[in-house]
């Protein structure tokens, strides 16, 4: 249990870069326009999804560490 944090950091580091570049690309090309109310809601959903998964993974890591 040394195994624990590097996979998490790598997953959300590399994944976070892909996610951020993707967001910048769709904002710059006006594929996603925050000025539209419907698109603004989708922008929140995209952020929510990213932190939902990061939070879920972190929670299970802490639960596993707590059961040692």
């Amino acid at each position: 249990m040394d195994r624990v944090w590097l996979p998490f950091i790598y997953l959300y580091g590399v994944g976070g870069i892909i996610f951020t570049v993707g967001l910048i690309l769709i904002l710059r090309t006006k594929a996603l326009r925050p000025s539209y109310e419907r698109h603004r809601k989708w922008l929140w959903v995209l952020f929510y999804g990213f932190f939902f998964w990061a939070g879920l993974h972190a929670t299970f890591i802490f639960l596993a560490l707590g059961s040692r």
Binding site: L11, G15, G16, I18, F19, G22, L23, L25, I26, A31, L32, W42, L46, G49, F50, W53, L56, H57
Partner: peptide, 14 residues
């Protein structure tokens, strides 16, 4: 099952 979200912005709006 839990690593698909990173590409979702590019899928949804691209």
């Amino acid at each position: 099952y839990m690593n698909d979200w990173f590409f979702v912005p590019l899928f949804m709006f691209g």
